[in-house]
Structure formats: C-alpha cells, structure tokens
Design a protein around this nucleic acid. Structure first.
Lengths: 263, 263
DNA sequence: GGATTGATCTCGTAC
DNA sequence: GTACGAGGTCAATCC
C-alpha cells in the first residue's frame, strides 16, 4: 500500500530536506516549483525561470514538465546518480546519466509543494489490441488460424459495405464467407454475417456456402441465432494475434538494405 | 504566483469533488491513485489496476505514468472534453480528443493524494544549441569545411520537403547535393540523401551530380549502403562547429551569446 | 553494446 | 486540413 509524505509552500531549507530524503529513499517524487534548467549531453539546452512540475521516479527517470503539452521540456530517461545540493538561494537538483553521458541540472528557487510516495505497486499487464481491419488482414494472411485448409479468394476493405471481411474456399471446395469482430460478437454481428452469406448465395446460386463468424467471444443469444441460421463461430485470441502480427511485422520489415531502391 | 490546493487519502466522494473542481478550474492536476485505464483511438489498450500518477495540464494534456520509465503508459496529447464521473466504487475520469477521435478512461478506485495548482507562470524561453538547421547554416557560410572549392548555389529551408539541406557546385563544376545530420547518420539519412540526389538528377538529367552526407558519425551499415549508392560521407565536428560559430558571431558584432544561441 | 525500426510517436511548419 | 522532417526522440529487438 502506498504511503504519502508531502510538504506545501516550504522554505528552501525544508524543501531541500524533503527532496533529498525522497531521493535517498527512492520514493516517487513530485515537485511543483519555480526553477531553471540546464542540460548538457547529446544536445544542450537552457531554460530560464518558470513554474514547472518535476517528477522523479524510483528507477531514476526524471521529467520536467511545463504547464502545457505532452512532452517534457527536459528529462532524463534514467539516472546513474541523482544528487541534491543546498545553495544560497536555491536547491540544486542534479541527475547524471552514465551512457550516454548526460547531465540535467534543475535550480529550484521556490517550492510550491513536494510529494513523496513510497511503496507504489503496479503489476498490471499492459495489453494492446489490433483494430478490426488489422485482425482481418492477419487472418487473411493466416487463414489456417480460422480453419485448416482455407484459401482466401477475396478480401474486402472496410469501405466496401455489403460484403463480409473475406471469402475463402475450404478444403472441400465450399465457399466460406467470414466476418471478423474485434470484441464480443452480438446479434448484430450475426445478422451482418447472415446478410453477407445470403448476398453471396444470390450471386452464386449454384455454390455451396458456409458462414463463419470469427471473434474473441460471442453472446449466448448471438450463438443460438448463429446456430439456428446454420452459421459457425470461431474463437480467435486477439492478444495472441497482436503478438504474432507484431512479430511478423518486424520480420517483414527487415528486408535487405538495398530493398528500397528496387521499389 | 502559484496557489496550491491538495487533498490526501480522501474517500471517493471527496476525491471526486476535488478532481472535478480542478478540471473545471483548469488547474494543473496531479493525482496519485490506484486505477485502471482503457484507451481507444488510433490504437487500443487496456491496463489493469495498479498505482499510477495521473497528470492533467491546463491545456488538456493528460499523462498516466507508471512508477518507472520515461514514457507515460497512456496519454492524451490534448483533450477536447474532460469529464469526471462519480460511480459506485470508483471515479471515472474521461478525456476525449476530437481529431483524431480518441478516448482515454481512467477508473480510479483509490486516491492517495491529489494536488491542484492554479496560476502557474512559465514564460521562459527554451534555448537549444546548434540544431540541424544551424549546423547547415554554418556549413552554408563555410562550405570549405565540407570540401575545398565548393560553392553553395541553393540553401533549402529545413521544411521544404523533397530537397536536401543544400546544393553546391564543386571545383570541377559538378553539382553536389548535401544532407546534414547533427547526430550519427543511420540508414534513414542515407535513403533521404539518395532520394534527394535522384530528385535532383530527374530535374537535371544532363548534370553530373554527387551526394554528400555530412554528419558527426555514420553507422557501418549506413556507410556501406552510402558507398554502394555512389554517395559520399564527410565527418563534421559539431562541437568544433559550435565553437567556431560562437567565435564568428562575437567577431561579427554586438550580438550576445544568448542572441547567437537563439538564432 | 551498437544499430535498426516502430510509435496512440510528438511537434513544428509549409502548402 | 495534409505532408514531411526532426528529435537529447524512447523503447524493443536483433546481431
């Protein structure tokens, strides 16, 4: 459980003591202060006095944020050594990074507040998903994920409405209309697939046509409607697909150096 | 002068009131909380419960930081609308971005502390030394640093796309397309130069054209690609250029050091 | 450790 | 608005 210490509108001596102890204890430290910044490393910069938010994380990451925008104005992705010094009319905060050698110095002339949090716990997994188009793209490249022996014969783009995401031929020569969903499939998805399958049947009266709804999950009602319509459900693991697709993308991008010239 | 309000270890009702009022007043808001995050927009992500630092800036920028690392785990570069809702066992913080359409939702189950700062003032100028444009400017004034006998015939402004930083004529009357980098040049820089040289050749089919990549260093792969494309590498010493440029500026007149740096 | 590549890149700028 | 390029890019991955 996280424990919080804080100090508001302290004088420089108290501000120094607080900041220093937070650094020593490797707390998460947040300081709002009037300060100036000097950076020397890969680049070099100077920032005059102003009000900023200074964040120091337990792993040594340092961020100096101005009151606007996503990006920190100065930062240190990680620090080798962080020191705090008491000076005449200021507190000197210094973060040194080992490689590349970089030094960030924040000279604090007024502390508005400082907060130190100890014992933060953040074990949660960060999960990224693919959008529907990307999932369909991946399944088009790897139809065996949906069913062994499938061969994609048409891949529809999202814009072309009235058609399913893809049409394939199965190992027995039957057409397979496939609709992909990124989230739990409901009745709407089933109706959609049904419509696409009927469209396909109308356009190809002779053909044998199956319909598959590929989604990470399906509601009970949707599944029973699906079944009653003679359609099929296939579970897809979106997180796994995301990992596979990412890996594939990396490999795919690693073409030879001269590749781009031929293009 | 900045004014600070804060609340420590509040219950959800008090936490909600505080956060909501800070948003309404467009304060800089910093919250340490146990929370989960959902993001949908250009990408999509889920982050389970954990302790995080949430920062909301007066301009609508939102950052959710885990206890480690430089990068926020979730963010919003700016928000069109920020809303805060009281739910049964949580506070729902929602930031919606207009274009591209993106939604970030933070569900807060425990507020460790929250701080709102009003009236932050940060007018200071941020000054960087020798960016790429300034290096190119210097080389344009002193082409002999790149090669004896060069005469600059065109100096492109940094943002005119499709053209290299400068074009010169060498002592034998050949055109020389020059691309400048302030850090180690990689494959991307070589591809860029190659593109510019090809563009120039297309526009001037008769001309003899060389291509020079001027940078403080170049990766091995980049150099071999460069060579295989018939292009050339010139080492430039950025630190030396900085000193030279500084000296030149001093001699040049009354301009202060800061004046020069700003340019 | 060095190099390459992708990113919810962000940010600025020119058209 | 889009398009392009720079960045102290950062961060992950490959070699």
């Amino acid at each position: 459980m996280a424990s919080v210490r804080y100090i508001v509108d302290p004088d420089l001596a108290a501000g120094y003591d607080f900041i220093n102890s937070a650094i020593v204890q490797r707390d998460l430290l947040v300081v709002a202060a009037r300060c100036s910044v000097v950076y020397e490393g890969r680049g070099a910069s100077r920032l005059g006095e102003g009000d900023r938010l200074i964040i120091v994380k337990p792993d040594g990451a340092v961020l100096v944020h101005r009151p606007t925008g996503y990006s920190p104005v100065n930062w240190q992705p990680d620090s080798h050594v962080i020191t705090v010094e008491r000076q005449d009319n200021s507190i000197l905060f210094r973060s040194v990074r080992k490689r590349p050698r970089e030094v960030l110095e924040v000279t604090i002339s007024k502390v508005y507040f400082a907060i130190a949090v100890h014992g933060l716990v953040d074990d949660a997994e960060f999960i990224e998903y693919l959008d529907e188009g990307e999932i369909a793209d991946y399944l088009a490249r790897h139809p065996e994920v949906v069913e062994e022996g499938l061969r994609i014969i048409r891949r529809e783009r999202p814009l072309e409405s009235g058609y399913a995401d893809m049409v394939a031929v199965d190992s027995e020569g039957r057409y397979v209309v496939i609709e992909v969903k990124r989230v739990t499939a409901g009745l709407e998805a089933v109706k959609q697939l049904h419509r696409y399958v009927e469209n396909f049947r109308k356009a190809n009266p002779e053909a044998k046509v199956r319909g598959i709804l590929a989604a990470p999950a399906i509601t009970k009602d949707a599944l029973s409607l699906l079944t009653s319509l003679g359609l099929e459900y296939r579970h897809i693991d979106v997180a796994k697909l995301y990992r596979e697709a990412k890996r594939e993308k990396r490999r795919g991008g690693a073409a030879s150096l001269l590749e781009f010239i031929k293009r």
